[in-house]
Simulated assay, not measured.
Amino acid sequence: MDLKLVSRTLILAVAGGSFALTAFAQWQWIDKDGRKVYSDRSPPSDVPEKNILKQPRGAKMAVTPVPDGGDQATAPAPAAKNNASLPKLSGKDPLLEAKKKQAEDEEAAKKKVEEEKVAKGKADNCERAQKGAASLQSGQRISVTNAKGEREYMDDNARAAEVKRLQAIVNTDCK
């Protein structure tokens, strides 16, 4: 593409983007930090009227009387309704409470399944250790395979060490 065509397209895109930003923003004011703010809603009540730079035609910030007699600028207030007809809110969302309870129940179920797996693993370890200790204490010759893949028979020291190791497993897992 031609460099001029690319630069024109880029300039039009940037100009169009900034136009779109200001076209939808009907309010413009300077906030308490000194930055310009563009919005389609009126500024907060703490923004003084001298800091409002742009507003829609005929729009003014709604003024609601304060109980002490002064005026306070705020966003338009909803029409007053009879408080007796409004439902009393408990501050709890039943749907949210139900989801929270369901999540807690699922977490408890997962925890129970995990505990059952651990208990089953301990029971299996206990049974194997008891069988191994019984066979070592029977006096029969026990062979093991070394790192080279050769069969070796356990001597009395190796047998005693293995019985001690298996007894430690029995002590921890067979409760």
Rank of each mutant, 00 (worst) to 15 (best):
V37W: 05
Y38K: 07
Y38N: 10
S39E: 05
S39A: 13
R41E: 09
S42P: 11
P43G: 03
P44H: 04
P44K: 05
P44Q: 03
S45D: 12
E49M: 08
I52T: 02
L53H: 03
K54P: 00
Q55N: 04
P56D: 06
G58D: 05
G58V: 03
G58L: 06
G58C: 06
A59M: 12
K60R: 13
M61D: 01
M61N: 05
A62K: 06
V63H: 08
T64Y: 02
P65K: 15
P65Q: 14
P67T: 09
D68V: 01
D68C: 08
G69I: 08
G69N: 07
G70F: 14
G70I: 02
G70M: 13
G70Y: 12
D71W: 07
A73D: 00
T74K: 12
T74W: 07
A75P: 00
P78W: 02
A79Y: 06
A80T: 06
A80D: 08
A80N: 03
K81W: 00
K81V: 15
N82T: 02
N82A: 10
A84W: 04
A84E: 13
L86M: 15
P87R: 12
S90F: 06
S90I: 03
G91P: 06
P94N: 07
P94T: 03
P94K: 08
L96R: 14
E97G: 01
K99R: 15
K100P: 00
K101M: 11
E104K: 13
E104C: 03
E106H: 09
E106V: 08
E107I: 07
A108Q: 10
A109Q: 12
K110V: 01
K111F: 04
K112A: 15
E115M: 09
E115A: 15
K117E: 03
V118N: 07
V118F: 06
K120P: 00
K120D: 12
G121S: 13
K122P: 00
D124E: 14
D124A: 14
N125M: 10
R128V: 01
A129C: 04
A129K: 01
Q130A: 08
